[in-house]
Design a binder for these strands. Structure first.
Lengths: 158, 158
DNA sequence: ACCTGAACACCGTTCAAGT
DNA sequence: ACCTGAACACCGTTCAAGT
């Protein structure tokens, strides 16, 4: 509260006119983080859109290392969270994932990417070089692409 | 500090004889969390060992929801962390993963599982039923098994 | 060697009072 | 309508003093 108030040139008490408490303020920050992710588009192929989204998530984590971990701790039920999720839903449908499989596929993909991004900025990979982490992230995306393929294949079989 | 001290029937100040500060105490807690994971064995097939480890990680998260997220925030360089990692290394080698691929494969697997477990206990999946989460976790393991297979295949090709 | 009381800095929060 | 000062509870930490 103190840091935010100072940036606004105001005392901490002034904030309570605008947020109910610290948790509420943090929820607002999470909402802002989510708006940094690119909005759903239809122009490019879905593979490209998903990998751009993945990179954007990672970049947002690096820009806001102190708060990014909150994304794992708040239920993704807000408007901005819904927007980010819809972006993935759209791509998955376009990839050919069955409608009943879209939701859980998105959950796994998002979890894996958020988990990596949080680990990276929160310090779990502190001893690894940037090159190594870039390579890992690339492979992570490969794993997820492969997973999407298998979901599509399983859907066709049903 | 207060809560720990109370459980020990002692004042908070007494703790400073045993830990240098709160961060140090939290590091110790993380170390304890890691020891809850099953030690490496060679008895059962590696697939079974990995899935037992995955379940153990998830169960530990559920037992200690207040501190489990710390696992993403501390570099995995302590003795207990090394032990947990070696357990996975062993299984991956047995699966046929090339030696130069073992490390990054472990990183991706651990990240995905920790990311899921943290999301679950930290509240991100608050609106999902237990059944749904169980099914998701099952699928997550399927995805990782598939990933290991592909790593083995790529290793053979090289 | 280990623990405690007093004390301090810091931080989230409330509330009456100011403009 | 919005901000502030005073005040409070809480918490991590230090240190001299106790056993």
């Amino acid at each position: 509260m103190g840091a935010v108030a100072e940036r606004l040139g105001v005392t901490p008490m002034a904030l309570y006119r605008h947020v109910v408490n610290k948790a509420d303020l943090l929820d607002g920050i999470v909402e802002l983080l989510l708006t940094e992710f690119p909005a759903p588009t239809l122009e490019d192929p879905w593979t490209e859109r998903l990998s751009r989204l993945a990179e954007a998530i990672r970049a947002t984590a690096q820009r806001h290392p102190g708060v990014f971990a909150l994304l794992l701790q708040r239920p993704a039920t807000t408007r901005a969270a819904r927007g980010a999720r819809d972006s993935v839903y759209l791509a998955l449908r376009e990839a050919g994932v069955n409608e009943e499989r879209v939701a859980h596929t998105e959950r796994l993909i998002s979890t894996a990417i958020l988990g990596f991004a949080v680990s990276e900025v929160a310090g779990r990979f502190k001893d690894h070089s940037r090159r190594q982490l870039d390579a890992d992230f690339e492979r992570l995306q490969g794993m997820l692409a492969q997973f999407i393929d298998s979901e599509v294949a399983e859907g066709r079989r049903a």
